[in-house]
Design a protein around this nucleic acid. Sequence first.
DNA 1: CAATAAATGGCAACCGGTTGACAAATGGGG
DNA 2: CCCCATTTGTCAACCGGTTGCCATTTATTG
Lengths: 353, 353
Amino acid sequence: MTEPKKPDAPAATGRANKHARDGKSNPTIYDIAKVAGVNPSTVSRALSKPGRVSAKTQKLIEDAAAELNYQVNPFARALPTGRTNTFGLIVADITNPTFFDIIRGAETTATLRDYTLVLAESAESAVTELTAARRLMATVDGLILASPRTDDDNIRALARDKPVVVINREVEGVPCVVPDVNKGIGEAVRSLAANGHTKVAFVAGPPQSWMSARRWEGVRAACEWSRLEAVRLDSTKPTVDGGRQVARDVRASGVTAVLTYNDLLAIGLMQELQAAGIVVPDQISIVGFDDIFGADFTTPPLTTVRSPLGECGSGAATLLLDLLHGMGEPAGTLRVETELVLRGSSGRLLPAG
Amino acid sequence: MTEPKKPDAPAATGRANKHARDGKSNPTIYDIAKVAGVNPSTVSRALSKPGRVSAKTQKLIEDAAAELNYQVNPFARALPTGRTNTFGLIVADITNPTFFDIIRGAETTATLRDYTLVLAESAESAVTELTAARRLMATVDGLILASPRTDDDNIRALARDKPVVVINREVEGVPCVVPDVNKGIGEAVRSLAANGHTKVAFVAGPPQSWMSARRWEGVRAACEWSRLEAVRLDSTKPTVDGGRQVARDVRASGVTAVLTYNDLLAIGLMQELQAAGIVVPDQISIVGFDDIFGADFTTPPLTTVRSPLGECGSGAATLLLDLLHGMGEPAGTLRVETELVLRGSSGRLLPAG
DNA sequence: CAATAAATGGCAACCGGTTGACAAATGGGG
DNA sequence: CCCCATTTGTCAACCGGTTGCCATTTATTG
């Protein structure tokens, strides 16, 4: 006796009332189909597969869609296809201006190519980063990791799942965007040498930072080439505060010029030295890295080795999007140039007054 | 010989092979159901409706889920429910540091409450903003607009669709988070008056900016109260560059103190004045707004009326999330305090040398 | 003009979780 | 021991596009 009640009256509506619009929710392809007098699947094709339907039908459908003010439901699309037109960007610290331009570069490229950017922060922690990455993975088509703290293996594991692009670090087998530090560092060190400096310090960044290691290598090599003595100092954290803290060590080291892992350290260091009555650049030259927002706010404005951060962001996004659109498997490293931005914080050493 | 053709032997599998796992894609509730020996809908209930199933079944299902390393498919969930555990944040300009802290505040709160933040930029354009807002609306549960350029009606229209919270502007009928400028402005103007200034200028921001209008009102009122003369100058854009450009007008106006719509204008203005040989604050005092990152990098460091931007971001997110979780319809305005941060760029006027 | 190839539109089965309606099991009271 | 009120689990119909397959229509060509 299963007689299931017969929910729909047989004669009343030709089509089942399955996709009846009550005027409340958004229009669907079924509504368009009804208006245009075609099958829903034809609507779907017209809207997503250019050239699959005749120009006539196409127009019919587009008009109906425009009339109803139709917008695709991204979830309904994502469910069967897995495509979301979305990608994630994970940065170590949202308030670190280094990432501002990266974010903007990525966002601009995303919007330009009709993608949406999802942003997450790892708070400089490897585990938070991995958690965030895993969480995002479920909802995006691909992922950009900016200065990741996670180890190479985990990054490769993520990359096996969906396309991943890394900024500011090289990971074997994963496409990367990396500023080539050597040119900028070479210019910086030669400039210091030309101004009579003979001993320079490099203030390093976080120990896990791949980029910090590269910069120190670059500085050491360039100094060797220019016959300068180079010493390496450690910082507690790559921030303005960290820069202030390292000032003691800098003074103790007896150098006349300092390169720091990033601009924040340079700014903090300069503030602390000036507070101690040391004149920059007359008594000590300071050179930062990245040319972040605000690097020219200081007095004297900061000399720095510029990384084209916006370019890194948009380059990474482009790489990722190309990857998503089937452009094979480049997996190479995109290298962008660095250059010295000579401002007031570096220069000739004045004879001690 | 296990007969590799015959995809489904009639007797072998009780259920149809509809939700058979091929080991490639992610596990679904159907897999869990099979492992736990219950119906898929029971799994769904166990995982989303606490208390709906018996503790015994609950445990069974949770174990199976853990074993299979199950993660819900957000799209499959979003499709029938409309819930996405995601909200959008639209800012006028990603590289404007004013928004950094707002973004961070919102992001932190989002993550804390298990939401994902989607970021979009309007490039200071009302139409881009509306486009971005409409686009995001489809994929998020709610929206935060930071310093929107769109007009009130459009914002209310958005708010009819899904919960919307506005930062840095008041829109009737829409919940807002607004720094109350009067306290900070009062402190600033009194400080200027106490230092002997008699005529001050306010450099305004974008004409559509609600906040710029409030600040000018506040400045005018405070000046009146302190019996100072106040003049209003216009800027071309609310950036460092805009600040440089307005320097001419500032000098021509004959004031001895300037408040600017934001810190970027103040910084640009100060740079330009200093480049012209004017000493800050001896010859002119400068006061910014917001206390953005880098406001203390300048020499002299910038005096500014601080808005608790991080608090705005997290406050807006909290408001939105509460709204989403059914806490009625507060729709009120959350006011946060501003305060004067006295640094070196303002002070006593020195007699002209 | 018939035969064949290509373009086009329709049908229906998905994607994976949610939820209303209902049946079965469980428990409590008389 | 039976009846009724609750809990717990099951069924099946969604949500809204996508896409393989097939039937038709239209264009091409001998």
